[in-house]
Write a protein that binds this DNA or RNA. Structure first.
Length: 572
RNA sequence: GUGCCCGUAGCUCAACUGGAUAGAGCAACGGCCUUCUAAGCCGUAGGUUACAGGUUCGAUUCCUGUCGGGUGCGCCA
């Protein structure tokens, strides 16, 4: 149980004892140090409901409040706030427990079968910056859910099906016959462009391409083999990006759109049997009264085109059903661009209505905004083209290398190279993760790679400072008692003790920026502690205790950064 | 036209979902290195939370309207 939950329970009980059994305690970390460590705000509302004086009720609550061994001081302030100052011994005890726990003392909820669907690029083309946010945010969420103990399945719902694959496969056959296939496939973007040119210019080629779509759908072995070859090459490109980014996606996570092909007619017939499907203008559609079109009528969701083809709504419905019936998932998180919000609302609504997912299955669209350039417009190259993801990552690493070489030229070339990888990739990820995902965000090389401010390099640097202390500390007693005396120690301890709260919150809200904000506060507070409280120059028990604080700080920073997919370094 | 999201310091962003005097970081200005990495720390300045109402003990947060921006709205994904 987190401190906040513990306090909440106790205040709740006190409120009940004071005559307000149904009033919420509303316990939060205090806004300012002079208001204590935590504050309970529930009294004002409760007093209102009971039509009594809030100060008097606060007094009654405090008299009933049992915080023995937890708080050293409880005050009533303002109109009826209850300010709680935690006892240093209590905090020290919490930290001591975290030190001896691999999971840093976080509470383990009942494990749940959860899926995070993320990245999901279209295999027809090379990955570009548009795939970055889903890939990074989804990976962080998957890591956090795994850390709290859930059974996490990662799903890369790649686009490996659709009409453009006929064209690509036809072009693949052509380049293979001329012996250039391997060369051409090395640059997928170019491959797609050339195939498109052939399609537009050559009627015979276009016919072949269309014919291949039909053969592909019909399961023609030869065309299927070509398709598989293309998909494999494209996936290898993706894997290169994932490896470079340090994202935990592998081939086992891939389950593309094509995997649901056989089930699509069944989805249609089941919807029809359920009385949900109607024919309209030649297409098979479901009208959902929950969503109105501009005319105020139920909005249509197309399940099958008039030419018999299926759409991604159909595939997504099949996927929901598979995830329930076969995988038995209790929660599915879709990390997808905010622009698809309406689609997901419709998908979730229809899935439940059609019985493809039970009412208590949690389906959530974890939406995110667009990545913008410094001009506030979608991020593009100078010439206006899309930026390839590999190139973006390489540039980040190059920029980091230049910075590290400038700051610390004494380090060996190899060392600087590996620092540059961690710093460059970390900077890109952190810049994204540290912002509220729902809004658009502005991509800026200089701010994300700055060594000061709320950036990955600052956090990585803070970590190396702690590591440096331990390099010089020699032997220290890992079982030493931890106690809190100085204000800087108290503030650091308080933050360390709130790690579990942040993790729990990120796991439920899927908002990694909360973890970023927390780690930044922690790093900053550690630096204050580092300035105010000499560690190695201290003696005896004080030295041991401060080393314990430093050790827990290091582990918390490392764990937190790794949950964001960011590597830590011993020196930089 | 209509649905959704958004508008907070010069800039980039927070504000634990209704709590106290709206906080950080850049940038600006001023301090602190013979002492654990100064890639750091301390301080100063910077605000009518787009605007106008409403709800209540209390609003950046909830409701209504206005203005401004983004994005979606039946055979792409």
């Amino acid at each position: 149980m987190t401190i906040q939950q513990l306090l909440s329970q106790r205040v709740q009980a006190a409120l009940a004892a004071a005559g307000a059994p149904d009033a919420p305690a509303i316990v939060q970390p205090s806004g300012k140090p002079e208001f204590g460590d935590f504050q309970a705000n529930g009294v004002m509302g409760a007093a209102k409901a009971l039509k009594t004086n809030p100060r008097a009720l606060a007094q009654a609550v405090v008299e009933q409040l049992d915080l023995d061994g937890i708080a050293e001081k409880i005050e009533i302030a303002g109109p009826g706030f209850i300010n709680i100052h935690l006892a240093p011994e209590f905090l020290a005890g919490r930290l001591q427990a975290a030190l001896t726990d691999d999971a840093l003392g976080i509470a383990r909820p009942v494990p749940q079968k959860v899926m995070v669907e993320y990245s999901s690029p279209n295999l027809a083309k090379e990955m570009h910056v548009g795939h970055l946010r889903s890939t990074i945010i989804g990976d962080a969420i998957a890591r956090v859910l795994g850390f709290v103990g859930h059974d996490v399945a990662r799903c890369n719902h790649v686009g490996d099906w659709g009409t453009q694959f006929g064209m690509l496969v036809a072009y693949l056959l052509e380049t293979r016959q001329s012996g250039d296939a391997e060369l051409e496939l090395a640059d997928l973007e170019n491959f797609y462009r050339k195939a498109k040119v052939r399609f537009d210019e050559d009627a015979v080629f276009a016919d072949t391409a269309r014919n291949f779509v039909v053969k592909l759908q019909g399961g023609d072995a030869e065309v299927l083999a070509l398709w598989q070859q293309f998909v494999a090459v494209s996936m290898a490109h993706c894997q290169e990006v994932y490896d470079k980014l340090g994202v935990g996606l592998t081939l086992d996570a891939v389950r593309g759109e094509s995997a649901y092909n056989d089930d699509l007619p069944v989805v249609v017939s089941d919807l029809r049997a359920a009385g949900l499907l109607v024919e309209d203008q030649g297409a098979q559609v479901v009208f959902l009264p929950e969503f109105k079109n501009p005319e105020g009528e139920a909005q249509a969701m197309i399940i099958q085109k008039k030419d018999g083809g299926y759409l991604y709504a159909t595939t997504d419905l099949a996927a929901v059903r598979y995830r329930h019936r076969t995988l038995d998932l209790k929660r599915v998180i879709y990390v997808v661009d905010a622009r698809q919000s309406l689609h997901f609302q419709q998908l979730f609504t229809l899935s439940k209505k059609a019985g493809f997912a039970p009412a208590d299955m949690v389906l959530e669209h974890v939406a995110f905004g667009t990545m913008m350039g410094e001009d506030g417009r979608p991020f593009k190259t100078r010439s206006g083209g899309t930026v390839k993801l590999v190139e973006l990552i390489d540039e980040a690493i190059e920029r980091a290398y230049a910075l590290v070489s400038e700051k610390n030229p004494g380090l060996a070339e190899d060392t600087r190279r590996s620092i540059a990888r961690a710093v460059g990739v970390g900077a890109v990820k952190y810049a994204d993760l540290s912002k509220n995902r729902t809004s658009d965000y502005i991509f800026n090389w200089d701010t994300m790679l700055a060594f000061d401010g709320n950036t990955a390099p600052y956090l990585q640097y803070a970590y190396t400072r702690v590591q440096s202390v331990f390099r010089k500390a020699g032997d220290f007693n890992a079982a030493a008692a931890l106690f809190i005396a100085e204000p800087a120690e108290k503030q650091l301890a308080l933050l360390l003790a709130q790690f579990d709260e942040v993790i729990e919150s990120v796991a439920s809200t899927c908002q990694p920026h909360q973890l970023c904000g927390y780690l930044f506060n922690l790093a900053q507070q550690f630096s204050r502690f580092y300035e105010a409280c000499p560690i190695l120059a201290a003696e005896g028990a004080v030295r041991d205790s401060r080393l314990q604080l430093a050790a827990l700080t290091a582990r918390t920073l490392k764990t937190g950064l790794e949950l964001l997919g960011i590597a830590v370094l011993d020196e930089m």
